[in-house]
């Protein structure tokens, strides 16, 4: 599937319950907070269990793609400090303010990991993960009005600061972000 990238791939194909979860739990320990793991499994029950396990352990279940008999589960490792970091970018907009401006000539920049974007994003949003922003600044126009969004407003805060530092003048950080987005969304087809 195009555009669904993960930091780590775990092969749990052919394994029966409970092994896909046992292996995922082990593998996710070695990830950095915020990184995404792709778990490939063939056990049909693994989708419901992966989602329930992620919820109970605080990780973020992003979604599952089915390719033939293979189920590809995407999970983002919990990052506990994400919600509490002080936000520094001065210009902010609420989800509602962004929703009311979607028909105007603005850019919605989604800076979450590409796998997060893949399973749930605002239809007009473009995706540049925070970690890639530095190298991809040339894809953006300094004159545009840019609304930066992530899941909870922290990564978008960092992204907005980076843009401001690089001469972008009209940059809004959207709060709280996709975790609370009630408007229309899109995801990749499967």
């Amino acid at each position: 599937m195009e555009n669904v990238k993960a930091n780590v791939l775990l092969d749990a194909k052919g394994l029966a319950c409970p092994m896909p979860i046992v292996k995922t739990k082990k593998a996710i320990k070695d990830l950095e907070a915020g990184q995404v793991i792709e778990v490939q499994a063939t056990d049909k029950g693994s989708t419901a269990d992966m989602e329930a396990w992620a919820k109970s352990s605080g990780h973020l279940y992003l979604g599952t793609l089915a390719e033939g008999d293979i189920l590809k589960h995407f999970i983002r490792k919990a990052s506990s400090d994400e919600d509490t970091v002080e936000k520094k970018h001065p210009l902010t907009a609420t989800n509602e303010e962004l929703a009311s401006k979607l028909n105007e000539n603005i850019i919605v920049l989604d800076v979450r990991e590409s796998a997060e974007y893949a399973f749930n994003h605002i239809p007009s949003a473009i995706s540049i993960p925070l970690g890639e922003l530095e190298d991809r600044l040339s894809e953006l126009n300094k004159g545009d009005q840019i609304y930066v969004i992530c899941r909870t407003g922290s990564r978008s805060d960092l992204a907005a600061q980076k843009l401001a530092d690089n001469g972008f003048e009209d940059v809004m950080n959207v709060l709280p972000g996709m975790s609370n987005w009630s408007g229309e969304t899109a995801k990749l087809d499967n």
Binding site: P18, I21, W53
Partner: peptide
């Protein structure tokens, strides 16, 4: 009688 605890809580 029942107790429901998902196996992944008991790893």
């Amino acid at each position: 009688d029942y107790l429901n605890i998902p196996y992944f809580e008991l790893l």
